[in-house]
Design a protein around this nucleic acid. Sequence first.
DNA 1: GTAATTTCGGTATTTAAATACGCAAATATA
DNA 2: TATATTTGCGTATTTAAATACCGAAATTAC
Lengths: 132, 132
Amino acid sequence: MSKVVSMSEAASIALHGVILIAREKEGLNVLKIAERTNTSKHHVAKVMQRLVKAGYLTSHRGPTGGFELRKKPEDINFLEIYEIIEGAIEIGKCPMDKQVCPFDKCIMNNVTSKMTREFKEYLREQTVNQYL
Amino acid sequence: MSKVVSMSEAASIALHGVILIAREKEGLNVLKIAERTNTSKHHVAKVMQRLVKAGYLTSHRGPTGGFELRKKPEDINFLEIYEIIEGAIEIGKCPMDKQVCPFDKCIMNNVTSKMTREFKEYLREQTVNQYL
DNA sequence: GTAATTTCGGTATTTAAATACGCAAATATA
DNA sequence: TATATTTGCGTATTTAAATACCGAAATTAC
């Protein structure tokens, strides 16, 4: 019923989208990415925009337009892509967003820090070329 | 800037509240719990209600009213309390909530499952008496 | 019995984040 | 140059979840 670790559709689109684009020599447009990720073209467009701005994709408008990778698949890891969308992942933040802990010692005892470190490590290890 | 693992204020109030009540022999009322957790009395009241219904607390109205633990502190672990508020923690759920994965193999490769398992284990190991 | 205090429980509001929309700008083709 | 196609970008809407409110009911003490 409840979930501890979640990922926004935006981050999902970004990661899947980059892989899909990498797989395609010709470039891929919004509509095709939307179809293949089973999401709305509006949302895909929004997300791709940000990857273009961040320098990971080049875009072309008009017929035959679409997106291409700007870097080699082996030089892009998931963490970079993820953080463009979500912002830098912070380790050691209070999971309840408390500025001041009401208790002497935190009851979550840094378990969330450990988990976050793991998540970050995983994302850093995955490169796009591993998913071609 | 971004956070991977988070906890609602409600779950935080539940866990901290139960510990605070356990520390007090006399019982504790909404207002005091709110003060000591630095949260609103409205929200505390709401959360405590649920713990009463779930059988973890007894409540008394009127002056000298408040809440008391119904079980021994060593017999209450964090997981039980957490799940009353958030619902059962599910392992193995797609972090993007996809019903059908658009890819042959999941790009998150069960890292989130592992993290969730860890989180659950941690909560299960913590009992209230460890925080008296 | 009255007044003060406190929880109960239904509902309302807020909020933040995510997602969707729609027009503008660019490009290709014919 | 006209038309079709596609991305760009600002904004609107949705949504779900969290949080706050408020009158009612219970209890205590004097």
